[in-house]
Nucleic acid binder design. Structure first.
Length: 631
DNA sequence: GTCGTAGTTGAGGTG
DNA sequence: GCACCTCAACTACGA
């Protein structure tokens, strides 16, 4: 009997440059089943709106068409069951000899894959895996970095050099073997749907698991309706390898743009077209191979010669950062996505900390569940999430994020700094939850890593560099075109006031047909834009001082004082007033439902002056012991 | 161990 | 319009 191979597609929804698919074909299979399994973890536990699900289904449908072009008898066969329970049954029923898939170092993926590998061994099925999700194998990078997480781009590059060259892309296969028979003569194990953190998006019960081969019995790609989504996606960005490769060609046809690309010099306010490549969602779903992208960029840079940009700012540099976060996550494990237990993440007593409870998940937290230690901070958080902070540049970005599932990297910096160390002093894990929900390109490692970077809890520490919601936007877009696009209430406002509408006088506002009042959370009214939720200069000073104290105290997430709660005494002794748990009435909350009600006017007594000379008052710091950083 | 310097992407000013 | 400086000051890395 020849080889009968299951190729298990996961986050590698492509045919071009797939080392794992090549390994499967190298077995010269008699039968090859290209399959995708519905994973209840991703359906119920990972936050994701209709935009991201549409993108995933796009990628699957496109891949299925591409497979069919190579062999009309084949396609992407979608099986609606959790892989852990499904595989033992199909190994036997289909008489499988090999299981091949692309390795994945995400926290849940590791857990799932080790269960699948164990069941394969038990069934006598040989498992073959290859790495193609990053430039280098993340575990190998960690090994070459002395077993430690890669916490800087220098470390990543050094570890990469030790491994050696980045593999050249592998061409797409020219033909695929026929699939074998696919009897489903076994029962279906249906997963428990609770907790379903995507429930708010579903208006009808999801039918995802009602039939193992789908409603028509044809193993078809699911529809949004099957997932219970009745609302339509709002994003213009569509998934699939075909579009990804077209986009790649387009980007590299402009040689000057691609060869001289410098990320910090691209504008977060550019739209139609955006200033960056928009390839990140394709990378996330594996519709585009990072190595294919890398070698397009690298070959061009060498050809271009003088004037080409270099890492970390260049296009290849962007891919290096991605590898850095993947390898950091590979080394740190489940606690990489949080502060608690993470020895490389500073402890800062942010507002709205995550609830830690036995959840059955590796890290004992569920995205989105948090303590409301401060009702005011929760209102700020809700206004940030809804794009009604009263700071037009922040609101424009948050509204673009919600509608399109993508914003520019520097825009992410702006809103992340604003929510955490440069405004609200809300926990970065809250912001990461929101990005997980809205971003098409949400990558667990990169999301956690970037939030730690921006909140100055890991990777980056220059907390005194703070983004201004006024000045930062103006640097890129003097006249506020980006704001006018996303905050139509302000579209006719004079450019002198577009970043600070609260400073405009009545005549100016009347002329623009807008009133500045309220908190924006309640019923939307035409021609009304919310008042700013605080005095930014004042908040900036308070946050900076609090960051300084927290740095001086120097706790990390794995400190026993963080776990047992005695950290509080340290901060109280330091005179900290900006911290978790100081407000009375620790009302526990989970959702946006319990938004506050606080008058029509300004929330906290807005003063309309610009902050200058933000002097940080020095506290009595000397008596606090500084903890040595972990090695 | 000490010191100098670099670090993807701040703000605000000057020339 | 752009390059450069200062502000006040973080960590990591290599010599």
């Amino acid at each position: 009997m020849g080889n009968r191979v299951i190729y298990w597609f996961r986050t590698d929804l492509r045919l071009h440059d797939s080392p794992a698919l090549k390994a499967a074909l190298d077995l010269h299979p008699d039968a090859l089943w290209p399959i995708f399994t519905w994973d209840p973890h991703y359906v119920y536990r990972v936050k994701g709106g209709v935009n991201r699900w549409q993108y995933l289904l796009d990628c699957q449908a496109d891949l299925s068409r591409s497979i069919q072009k190579l062999n009309p008898k084949s396609k992407l066969f979608v099986l609606r069951e959790a892989p852990q329970t499904l595989f033992p049954k199909i190994f036997k029923a289909w008489n499988v000899t090999h299981l091949v898939f692309e390795k994945d170092t995400d926290v849940y993926a590791r857990e799932r894959d080790s269960a699948v590998v164990a069941s394969a061994e038990e069934a006598g099925v040989q498992v073959i895996t290859r790495y193609g999700r990053t430039l280098w194998d993340s575990d190998e990078l960690v090994a070459k970095n002395g077993g430690k997480p890669t916490m800087s781009i220098t470390q990543l590059q050094a570890a990469g050099r030790k491994i050696g060259g980045i593999p050249r892309p592998i061409p797409a296969p020219r033909h695929l073997p026929d699939p074998g028979e696919m009897p489903v003569s076994f029962g279906q194990d249906k997963p428990g749907a609770s907790p379903d953190i995507n429930a708010p998006y579903r208006s009808t019960p999801d039918e995802c698991y009602s039939h193992i081969a789908g409603p028509a019995g044809k193993f078809a790609v699911a529809s949004l309706e099957e997932l219970g989504f009745s609302v339509s996606a709002t994003t213009p960005h569509r998934g699939g390898e075909t579009i990804a490769l077209e986009r790649l060609q387009e980007i590299f046809s402009d040689e000057k743009y691609a060869a001289t690309f410098q990320k910090p010099k691209t504008s977060p306010a550019a739209f139609e077209p955006q200033s960056t490549t928009l390839l990140s969602p394709f990378l996330h779903f594996g519709a585009l191979s990072p190595r294919l992208f890398y070698w397009h960029a690298q070959d061009l840079v060498e050809k271009y010669g003088e004037g080409a940009s270099t890492p970390p700012e260049s296009l290849t540099g962007q891919l290096l950062f991605r590898d850095m976060y993947f390898a950091a996550q590979a080394a740190i494990g489940p606690s990489f996505a949080q502060t608690l237990g993470n020895g490389h993440c500073r402890f800062i007593p942010w507002h709205l900390p995550s609830k830690v409870e036995p959840t059955g998940l590796a890290n004992n937290t569920i995205a989105g569940r948090y303590h409301v230690d401060s009702p005011q901070a929760d209102r700020w958080f809700q206004r940030w999430k809804a794009g009604v902070t009263g700071f037009p540049f922040v609101d424009a970005l948050m509204r673009q994020l919600r509608a399109e599932g993508w914003i520019h990297h520097l825009g992410r910096h702006m809103v992340a700094c604003f929510l955490t160390r440069g405004g609200c002093y809300v926990h970065w894990e809250r912001g990461a939850d929101v990005f997980e929900e809205f971003l098409l390109d949400h990558e667990p490692a990169c999301n956690a890593g970037n939030w730690q970077w921006l909140s100055c809890t890991a990777f980056y520490s220059q907390y005194y560099r703070c983004y201004s919601p006024v000045a930062f936007g103006q640097k890129w877009d003097k006249t506020g075109e980006f704001i006018r696009r996303w905050v139509p209430e302000l579209k006719d406002l004079d450019e002198k006031f577009i970043y600070e509408p609260w400073t405009a006088n009545q005549a100016v506002l009347d002329k623009a047909g807008v009133r500045v009042e309220g908190d924006g959370l309640r019923e939307k009214r035409d021609g009304v834009y919310p008042s700013p939720m605080f005095d930014f200069g004042e908040r900036r000073r308070a946050c900076l001082a609090a960051m300084k104290r927290a740095y001086s105290i120097g706790l990390y997430g794995d400190d026993e004082r963080v776990e047992d709660g005695t950290w509080k005494e340290l901060f109280e002794r330091a005179g900290e007033t900006e911290m978790e748990g100081l407000d009375a009435g620790d009302a526990d909350g989970e959702h946006a439902d319990d938004v506050g009600d606080h008058g029509d006017g300004t929330e906290d007594g807005i003063r309309h002056k610009k902050a200058r000379n933000p002097v940080v008052k020095e506290g009595p710091m000397d008596k606090h012991v500084k903890k040595k950083r972990k090695t």
